[in-house]
Computed example of a mutant assay.
Amino acid sequence: MLVRDLGVDGLALLELVETLQGRLSIIVPDEVTARIRTVADLQDAVARLMAAAPSSAPTPRI
Results as ranks from 00 to 15, higher is better:
residue 34 A to C: 05
residue 37 R to F: 04
residue 1 M to H: 13
residue 8 V to K: 01
residue 8 V to M: 07
residue 31 E to G: 03
residue 8 V to P: 04
residue 39 V to W: 03
residue 22 G to I: 02
residue 51 A to G: 12
residue 61 R to I: 08
residue 20 L to M: 13
residue 10 G to L: 07
residue 38 T to S: 15
residue 7 G to F: 06
residue 47 A to G: 11
residue 50 M to V: 08
residue 25 S to W: 07
residue 25 S to Q: 12
residue 29 P to W: 02
residue 20 L to K: 01
residue 43 Q to N: 12
residue 19 T to G: 01
residue 26 I to H: 01
residue 7 G to W: 07
residue 25 S to C: 09
residue 56 S to W: 08
residue 38 T to D: 06
residue 2 L to I: 08
residue 56 S to T: 10
residue 23 R to D: 10
residue 42 L to K: 01
residue 16 L to I: 07
residue 20 L to E: 04
residue 10 G to M: 05
residue 25 S to K: 15
residue 47 A to R: 12
residue 34 A to K: 14
residue 18 E to W: 02
residue 50 M to H: 10
residue 44 D to K: 07
residue 38 T to Y: 05
residue 54 P to F: 06
residue 4 R to Y: 10
residue 15 E to F: 00
residue 15 E to S: 04
residue 23 R to W: 06
residue 49 L to E: 08
residue 28 V to H: 01
residue 10 G to D: 15
residue 42 L to W: 00
residue 5 D to H: 12
residue 35 R to K: 15
residue 24 L to C: 10
residue 30 D to H: 11
residue 48 R to F: 01
residue 52 A to H: 05
residue 3 V to K: 14
residue 35 R to Y: 05
residue 34 A to S: 13
residue 14 L to A: 05
residue 20 L to A: 13
residue 20 L to H: 01
residue 35 R to M: 11
residue 29 P to M: 04
residue 27 I to N: 13
residue 31 E to A: 06
residue 10 G to T: 09
residue 23 R to T: 10
residue 7 G to I: 09
residue 17 V to N: 01
residue 51 A to Q: 14
residue 54 P to S: 14
residue 62 I to H: 09
residue 39 V to F: 04
residue 44 D to Q: 14
residue 45 A to M: 10
residue 13 L to I: 00
residue 22 G to K: 02
residue 52 A to I: 05
residue 16 L to R: 00
residue 41 D to G: 07
residue 6 L to H: 11
residue 62 I to M: 06
residue 33 T to D: 03
residue 7 G to D: 11
residue 5 D to K: 14
residue 28 V to S: 02
residue 2 L to S: 10
residue 48 R to M: 08
residue 4 R to P: 03
residue 13 L to G: 00
residue 42 L to T: 02
residue 2 L to H: 06
residue 49 L to Q: 11
residue 50 M to G: 12
residue 10 G to E: 12
residue 47 A to M: 09
residue 46 V to K: 00
residue 52 A to S: 14
residue 62 I to S: 11
residue 43 Q to M: 08
residue 45 A to C: 13
residue 56 S to L: 13
residue 39 V to N: 04
residue 36 I to Q: 03
residue 1 M to R: 15
residue 12 A to V: 03
residue 1 M to G: 15
residue 53 A to N: 12
residue 15 E to I: 00
residue 12 A to D: 06
residue 14 L to H: 00
residue 10 G to A: 15
residue 19 T to D: 02
residue 35 R to D: 13
residue 46 V to E: 00
residue 7 G to E: 12
residue 44 D to C: 04
residue 6 L to C: 10
residue 20 L to G: 01
residue 36 I to G: 01
residue 24 L to M: 11
residue 37 R to T: 06
residue 28 V to D: 02
residue 1 M to S: 15
residue 15 E to D: 14
residue 35 R to H: 13
residue 32 V to L: 07
residue 19 T to F: 02
residue 47 A to N: 13
residue 33 T to F: 03
residue 5 D to N: 12
residue 14 L to K: 00
residue 30 D to R: 12
residue 27 I to Q: 11
